[in-house]
Computed example of a mutant assay.
Amino acid sequence: MTGDGSGRSARLLLLLLSVSLNLITGLSENPSPSKDSTTASNHSSSGHKTGLKVLLACVGVAILLVLSFFLFKMWQKRKREEQHARLLKLFEEDNELEVELGLRD
């Protein structure tokens, strides 16, 4: 990774957030002002729909957080393995170089 992984993940998070917000606003219905007796029943059902929207938004945010945490842990593990490989390569014995320098026969 070149170091811009946080920028890429931030853009991905922003994209997923905007898509989820568009889905939530798409679930809403167009309220038309009516003056008959069905207004009270529509008002109670719209309260349930608002609660559903809030619940879906919270679940979406929770999923994004868990996914971000999982990806961050995978990234950390990969970086740790790369650093370990570099360390092993740094301290591996190079017999040819020792022979050329006359340190070993």
Score class of each variant (00 low, 15 high):
64 L>Q: 14
71 L>A: 08
68 S>I: 06
85 A>H: 03
50 T>Y: 09
67 L>I: 06
72 F>G: 04
64 L>N: 11
54 V>T: 04
61 V>F: 13
50 T>I: 11
50 T>C: 06
67 L>A: 09
71 L>D: 08
66 V>W: 07
87 L>E: 04
87 L>T: 03
86 R>T: 03
92 E>S: 12
77 K>T: 13
89 K>L: 12
76 Q>V: 10
84 H>Q: 12
91 F>N: 06
78 R>H: 12
58 C>V: 13
59 V>K: 03
66 V>I: 15
62 A>G: 07
76 Q>H: 07
53 K>N: 10
56 L>M: 06
61 V>G: 04
53 K>T: 09
48 H>V: 13
70 F>I: 12
82 E>Y: 05
59 V>N: 01
74 M>K: 15
89 K>C: 04
83 Q>V: 12
72 F>N: 12
74 M>Q: 14
80 R>I: 09
81 E>L: 06
88 L>K: 06
62 A>Y: 09
49 K>F: 07
91 F>P: 00
50 T>L: 11
81 E>M: 05
76 Q>I: 08
52 L>N: 00
74 M>S: 14
78 R>N: 13
88 L>E: 04
49 K>S: 14
72 F>Y: 12
79 K>I: 13
52 L>I: 02
50 T>D: 10
92 E>G: 04
62 A>W: 07
68 S>C: 11
81 E>H: 03
57 A>T: 09
66 V>N: 07
75 W>A: 14
